[in-house]
Design a protein around this nucleic acid. Structure first.
Length: 576
DNA sequence: AAAAAAC
């Protein structure tokens, strides 16, 4: 029900014929391997967005759901058209014209694969079933939840996993990565409780690791949907559930564990858990899981999976070179699948940058924004827990309705409550930290505001990926201050690459290395730059001058740009 | 490069 409400809110009109044109276009382009250049350019406004399904539909059966799903899978192209026709229906819950439930053709992103003996993609779930004996109850659960046709990542990744191969999969936010590994995983489990099966062994057979509790929870829910009607033990790992595993009899009956790394490591160390029967290990949000803080924990889990055949797979929307190297070293004869352009957000997220001079100017800017019509729920990102809390408080003080806050400093229950309010559509404005940046699938989120500038390109991509999911359009606004200037350009490039507009002057900003030199006082105008970094309020005007100044300088520099040589002046790169 | 998150 909630699901359907959310769905309706972003509803679109369906026009089969127009969509068919799109499909033909996609098919042509996607098959031309050698023509990728042209394709990429075409992608600018035209690249078909990958489509997801309503991953988080609640269980309540809906007469309209199937139709709705089919509609969703076309929503992308339609939305664009709809926008062209400037016939927007935003913000109302008006009934939506859902398409009939005829088998939809599969729109395609550009997909590239690398590796040995890559199994061909499966165009339909039916094909998947026939090729790999996917149990029919899984198929009917898919249908029941409205998954009528696989997304690009699903049609490529699932066969690879069903083929027992290791995989590194990169696919944009909101394109159905979760299902693409859960379906093979559940298939591999076989019939529940059949310990008589020769190779089932005893104990946990599959593990999914995710960086936040909320995400693990969400994956668990997905898994339960797929498993519905069968008696697999699928455990969302927490302190409480971990405790029950002290009993070996209980432990041995668990089939799948979904957990955050540290929780799992704690259980390993307490001796309450063994992973020697694990055959499948999935890292969701892989680049996050492989960065320094999580890496050792993940390695510990990997090391504990001592079965001779452990299939490993990593999934993410972003995978910087460093993380990819680590991943590839971890995997065995891996296949790499990339859907769309790596490290590029979906083009149907309309992104913009807003200059706010300094920190004190952010709140008034936001309040002004929220005093005008907007599309709730809005997800707002702050850089720290205290900032998230105080921003939420400010918004409440300023009578913004239905404000919520979510960060990891809150109790488990508070966090769960906040998520469920969000799922029910009761939150209009959700202020959060990076906890919410990855993986969380709130289909209703139509706007993301980066109140504090993201600390990396990856963070930016994941944050704004909370909107524009399942083929719907989304909007992302990023505030930047003078202090953010060094990082601005790399974000601006992300906007450009995914088809959003960026003001000329931002692209002309000096390279950060130059900026740094200036900050270090090596440039004559240093005084215009340096003080600005420290002062708080009252200096906004000066700072404006500074930005304007650097802009002018840059424009003047123009062709002579290289003269300063700027020793060691490489392009700024936010990636680690 | 740095905060957040993980228990």
């Amino acid at each position: 029900m909630e699901a359907f409400q959310l769905l309706s809110r972003g509803g679109v009109q369906f026009d089969k014929n127009r969509f068919k044109q799109d499909v033909q276009l996609f098919d042509k382009t996607s098959k031309k391997g050698g023509n990728s250049k042209a394709l990429v350019q075409n992608a600018d406004g035209q690249l078909p967005t990958q489509l997801d399904f309503f991953k988080y539909a609640q269980a309540g059966p809906s007469k309209k759901r199937k139709g709705a799903e089919a509609g969703l899978s076309h929503a992308d192209g339609l939305k664009r058209r709809k926008a062209e026709e400037s016939e927007d229906e935003e913000g109302d819950d008006a009934d939506v014209d859902m398409p009939p439930n005829s088998a939809p053709p599969i729109p395609r992103h550009k997909v590239t694969t690398k590796g040995s003996n890559v199994p061909p993609p499966a165009d339909t779930f039916e094909a998947l079933k026939e090729r790999y004996n996917v149990p029919s109850h899984l198929m009917s659960n898919l249908l029941q939840y409205g998954y009528t046709a696989p997304t690009a990542i699903q049609s490529y990744a699932s066969p690879i996993l069903l083929d027992s191969r290791d995989l590194a999969a990169i696919s944009p936010t909101g394109t159905g990565k979760t299902l693409s590994y859960l379906l093979p995983l559940m298939t591999a489990l076989g019939a529940p409780g059949s310990s008589s099966k020769i190779d089932a062994g005893v104990g946990v057979r599959a593990i999914v690791l995710a960086p936040t509790r909320e995400l693990a929870h969400q994956i668990h829910n997905e898994c339960l949907k797929l498993a519905q009607g069968r008696k697999w033990r699928i455990v969302l790992f927490s302190k409480a559930t971990a405790a029950t595993l002290a009993d070996k009899a209980v432990r041995d009956k668990v089939d799948v564990i979904i957990s955050t790394p540290l929780r799992l490591v704690a259980s390993l160390q307490s001796g309450h858990l063994t992973l020697d029967n694990v055959r499948h290990l999935v890292l969701d949000e892989a680049d996050r899981m492989l960065d320094t803080e999580f890496l050792s924990q993940v390695q510990e889990v990997v090391a504990a999976c001592t079965h001779e055949h452990v299939q490993k797979a990593v999934f993410s929307a972003t995978l910087p070179a460093g993380a990819e190297k680590i991943a590839m070293d971890m995997l065995n004869d891996p296949i790499r699948v990339v859907v769309g352009l790596k490290d590029t957000p979906l083009p149907l997220i309309a992104q913009s940058l807003t200059y706010v001079a300094d920190d004190p100017s952010k709140l008034p800017t936001l309040l002004t924004y929220l005093s005008q019509p907007y599309n709730p729920p809005v997800l707002i990102f702050a850089s720290s827990q205290p900032r998230a809390t105080s921003l939420a408080e400010e918004l409440v003080l300023h009578a913004i309705p239905n404000v919520d806050c979510l960060h990891a400093g809150m109790t488990k229950k508070e966090r769960e409550d906040a998520v469920s309010r969000m799922r029910r559509g009761e939150s209009w404005v959700m202020v959060s930290t990076e906890v919410m940046a990855r993986g969380m699938d709130f289909k209703g989120v139509r706007e993301v505001i980066n109140y504090d500038f993201p600390q990396s390109v990856q963070s930016y991509i994941h944050r704004i990926g909370r909107t524009g999911r399942a083929g719907r359009e989304g909007k992302a606004i990023t505030y930047f201050t003078d202090e953010d200037a060094p990082y601005l350009k790399s974000i601006a490039n992300v906007l450009l690459q995914s088809g959003s507009q960026v003001p000329e002057w931002i692209l002309k900003l000096p390279k950060p290395s130059k900026l740094k030199r200036k900050q270090m006082g090596k440039v004559k105008r240093a005084e215009a730059v340096n003080p600005a970094r420290r002062v708080g309020r009252g200096e906004a005007i000066k700072k404006r001058d500074m930005i304007a100044g650097s802009q002018r300088r840059k424009e003047k520099a123009g062709k002579g740009e290289k003269h300063n040589a700027d020793a060691g002046g490489e392009d700024f790169d936010m990636a680690p």
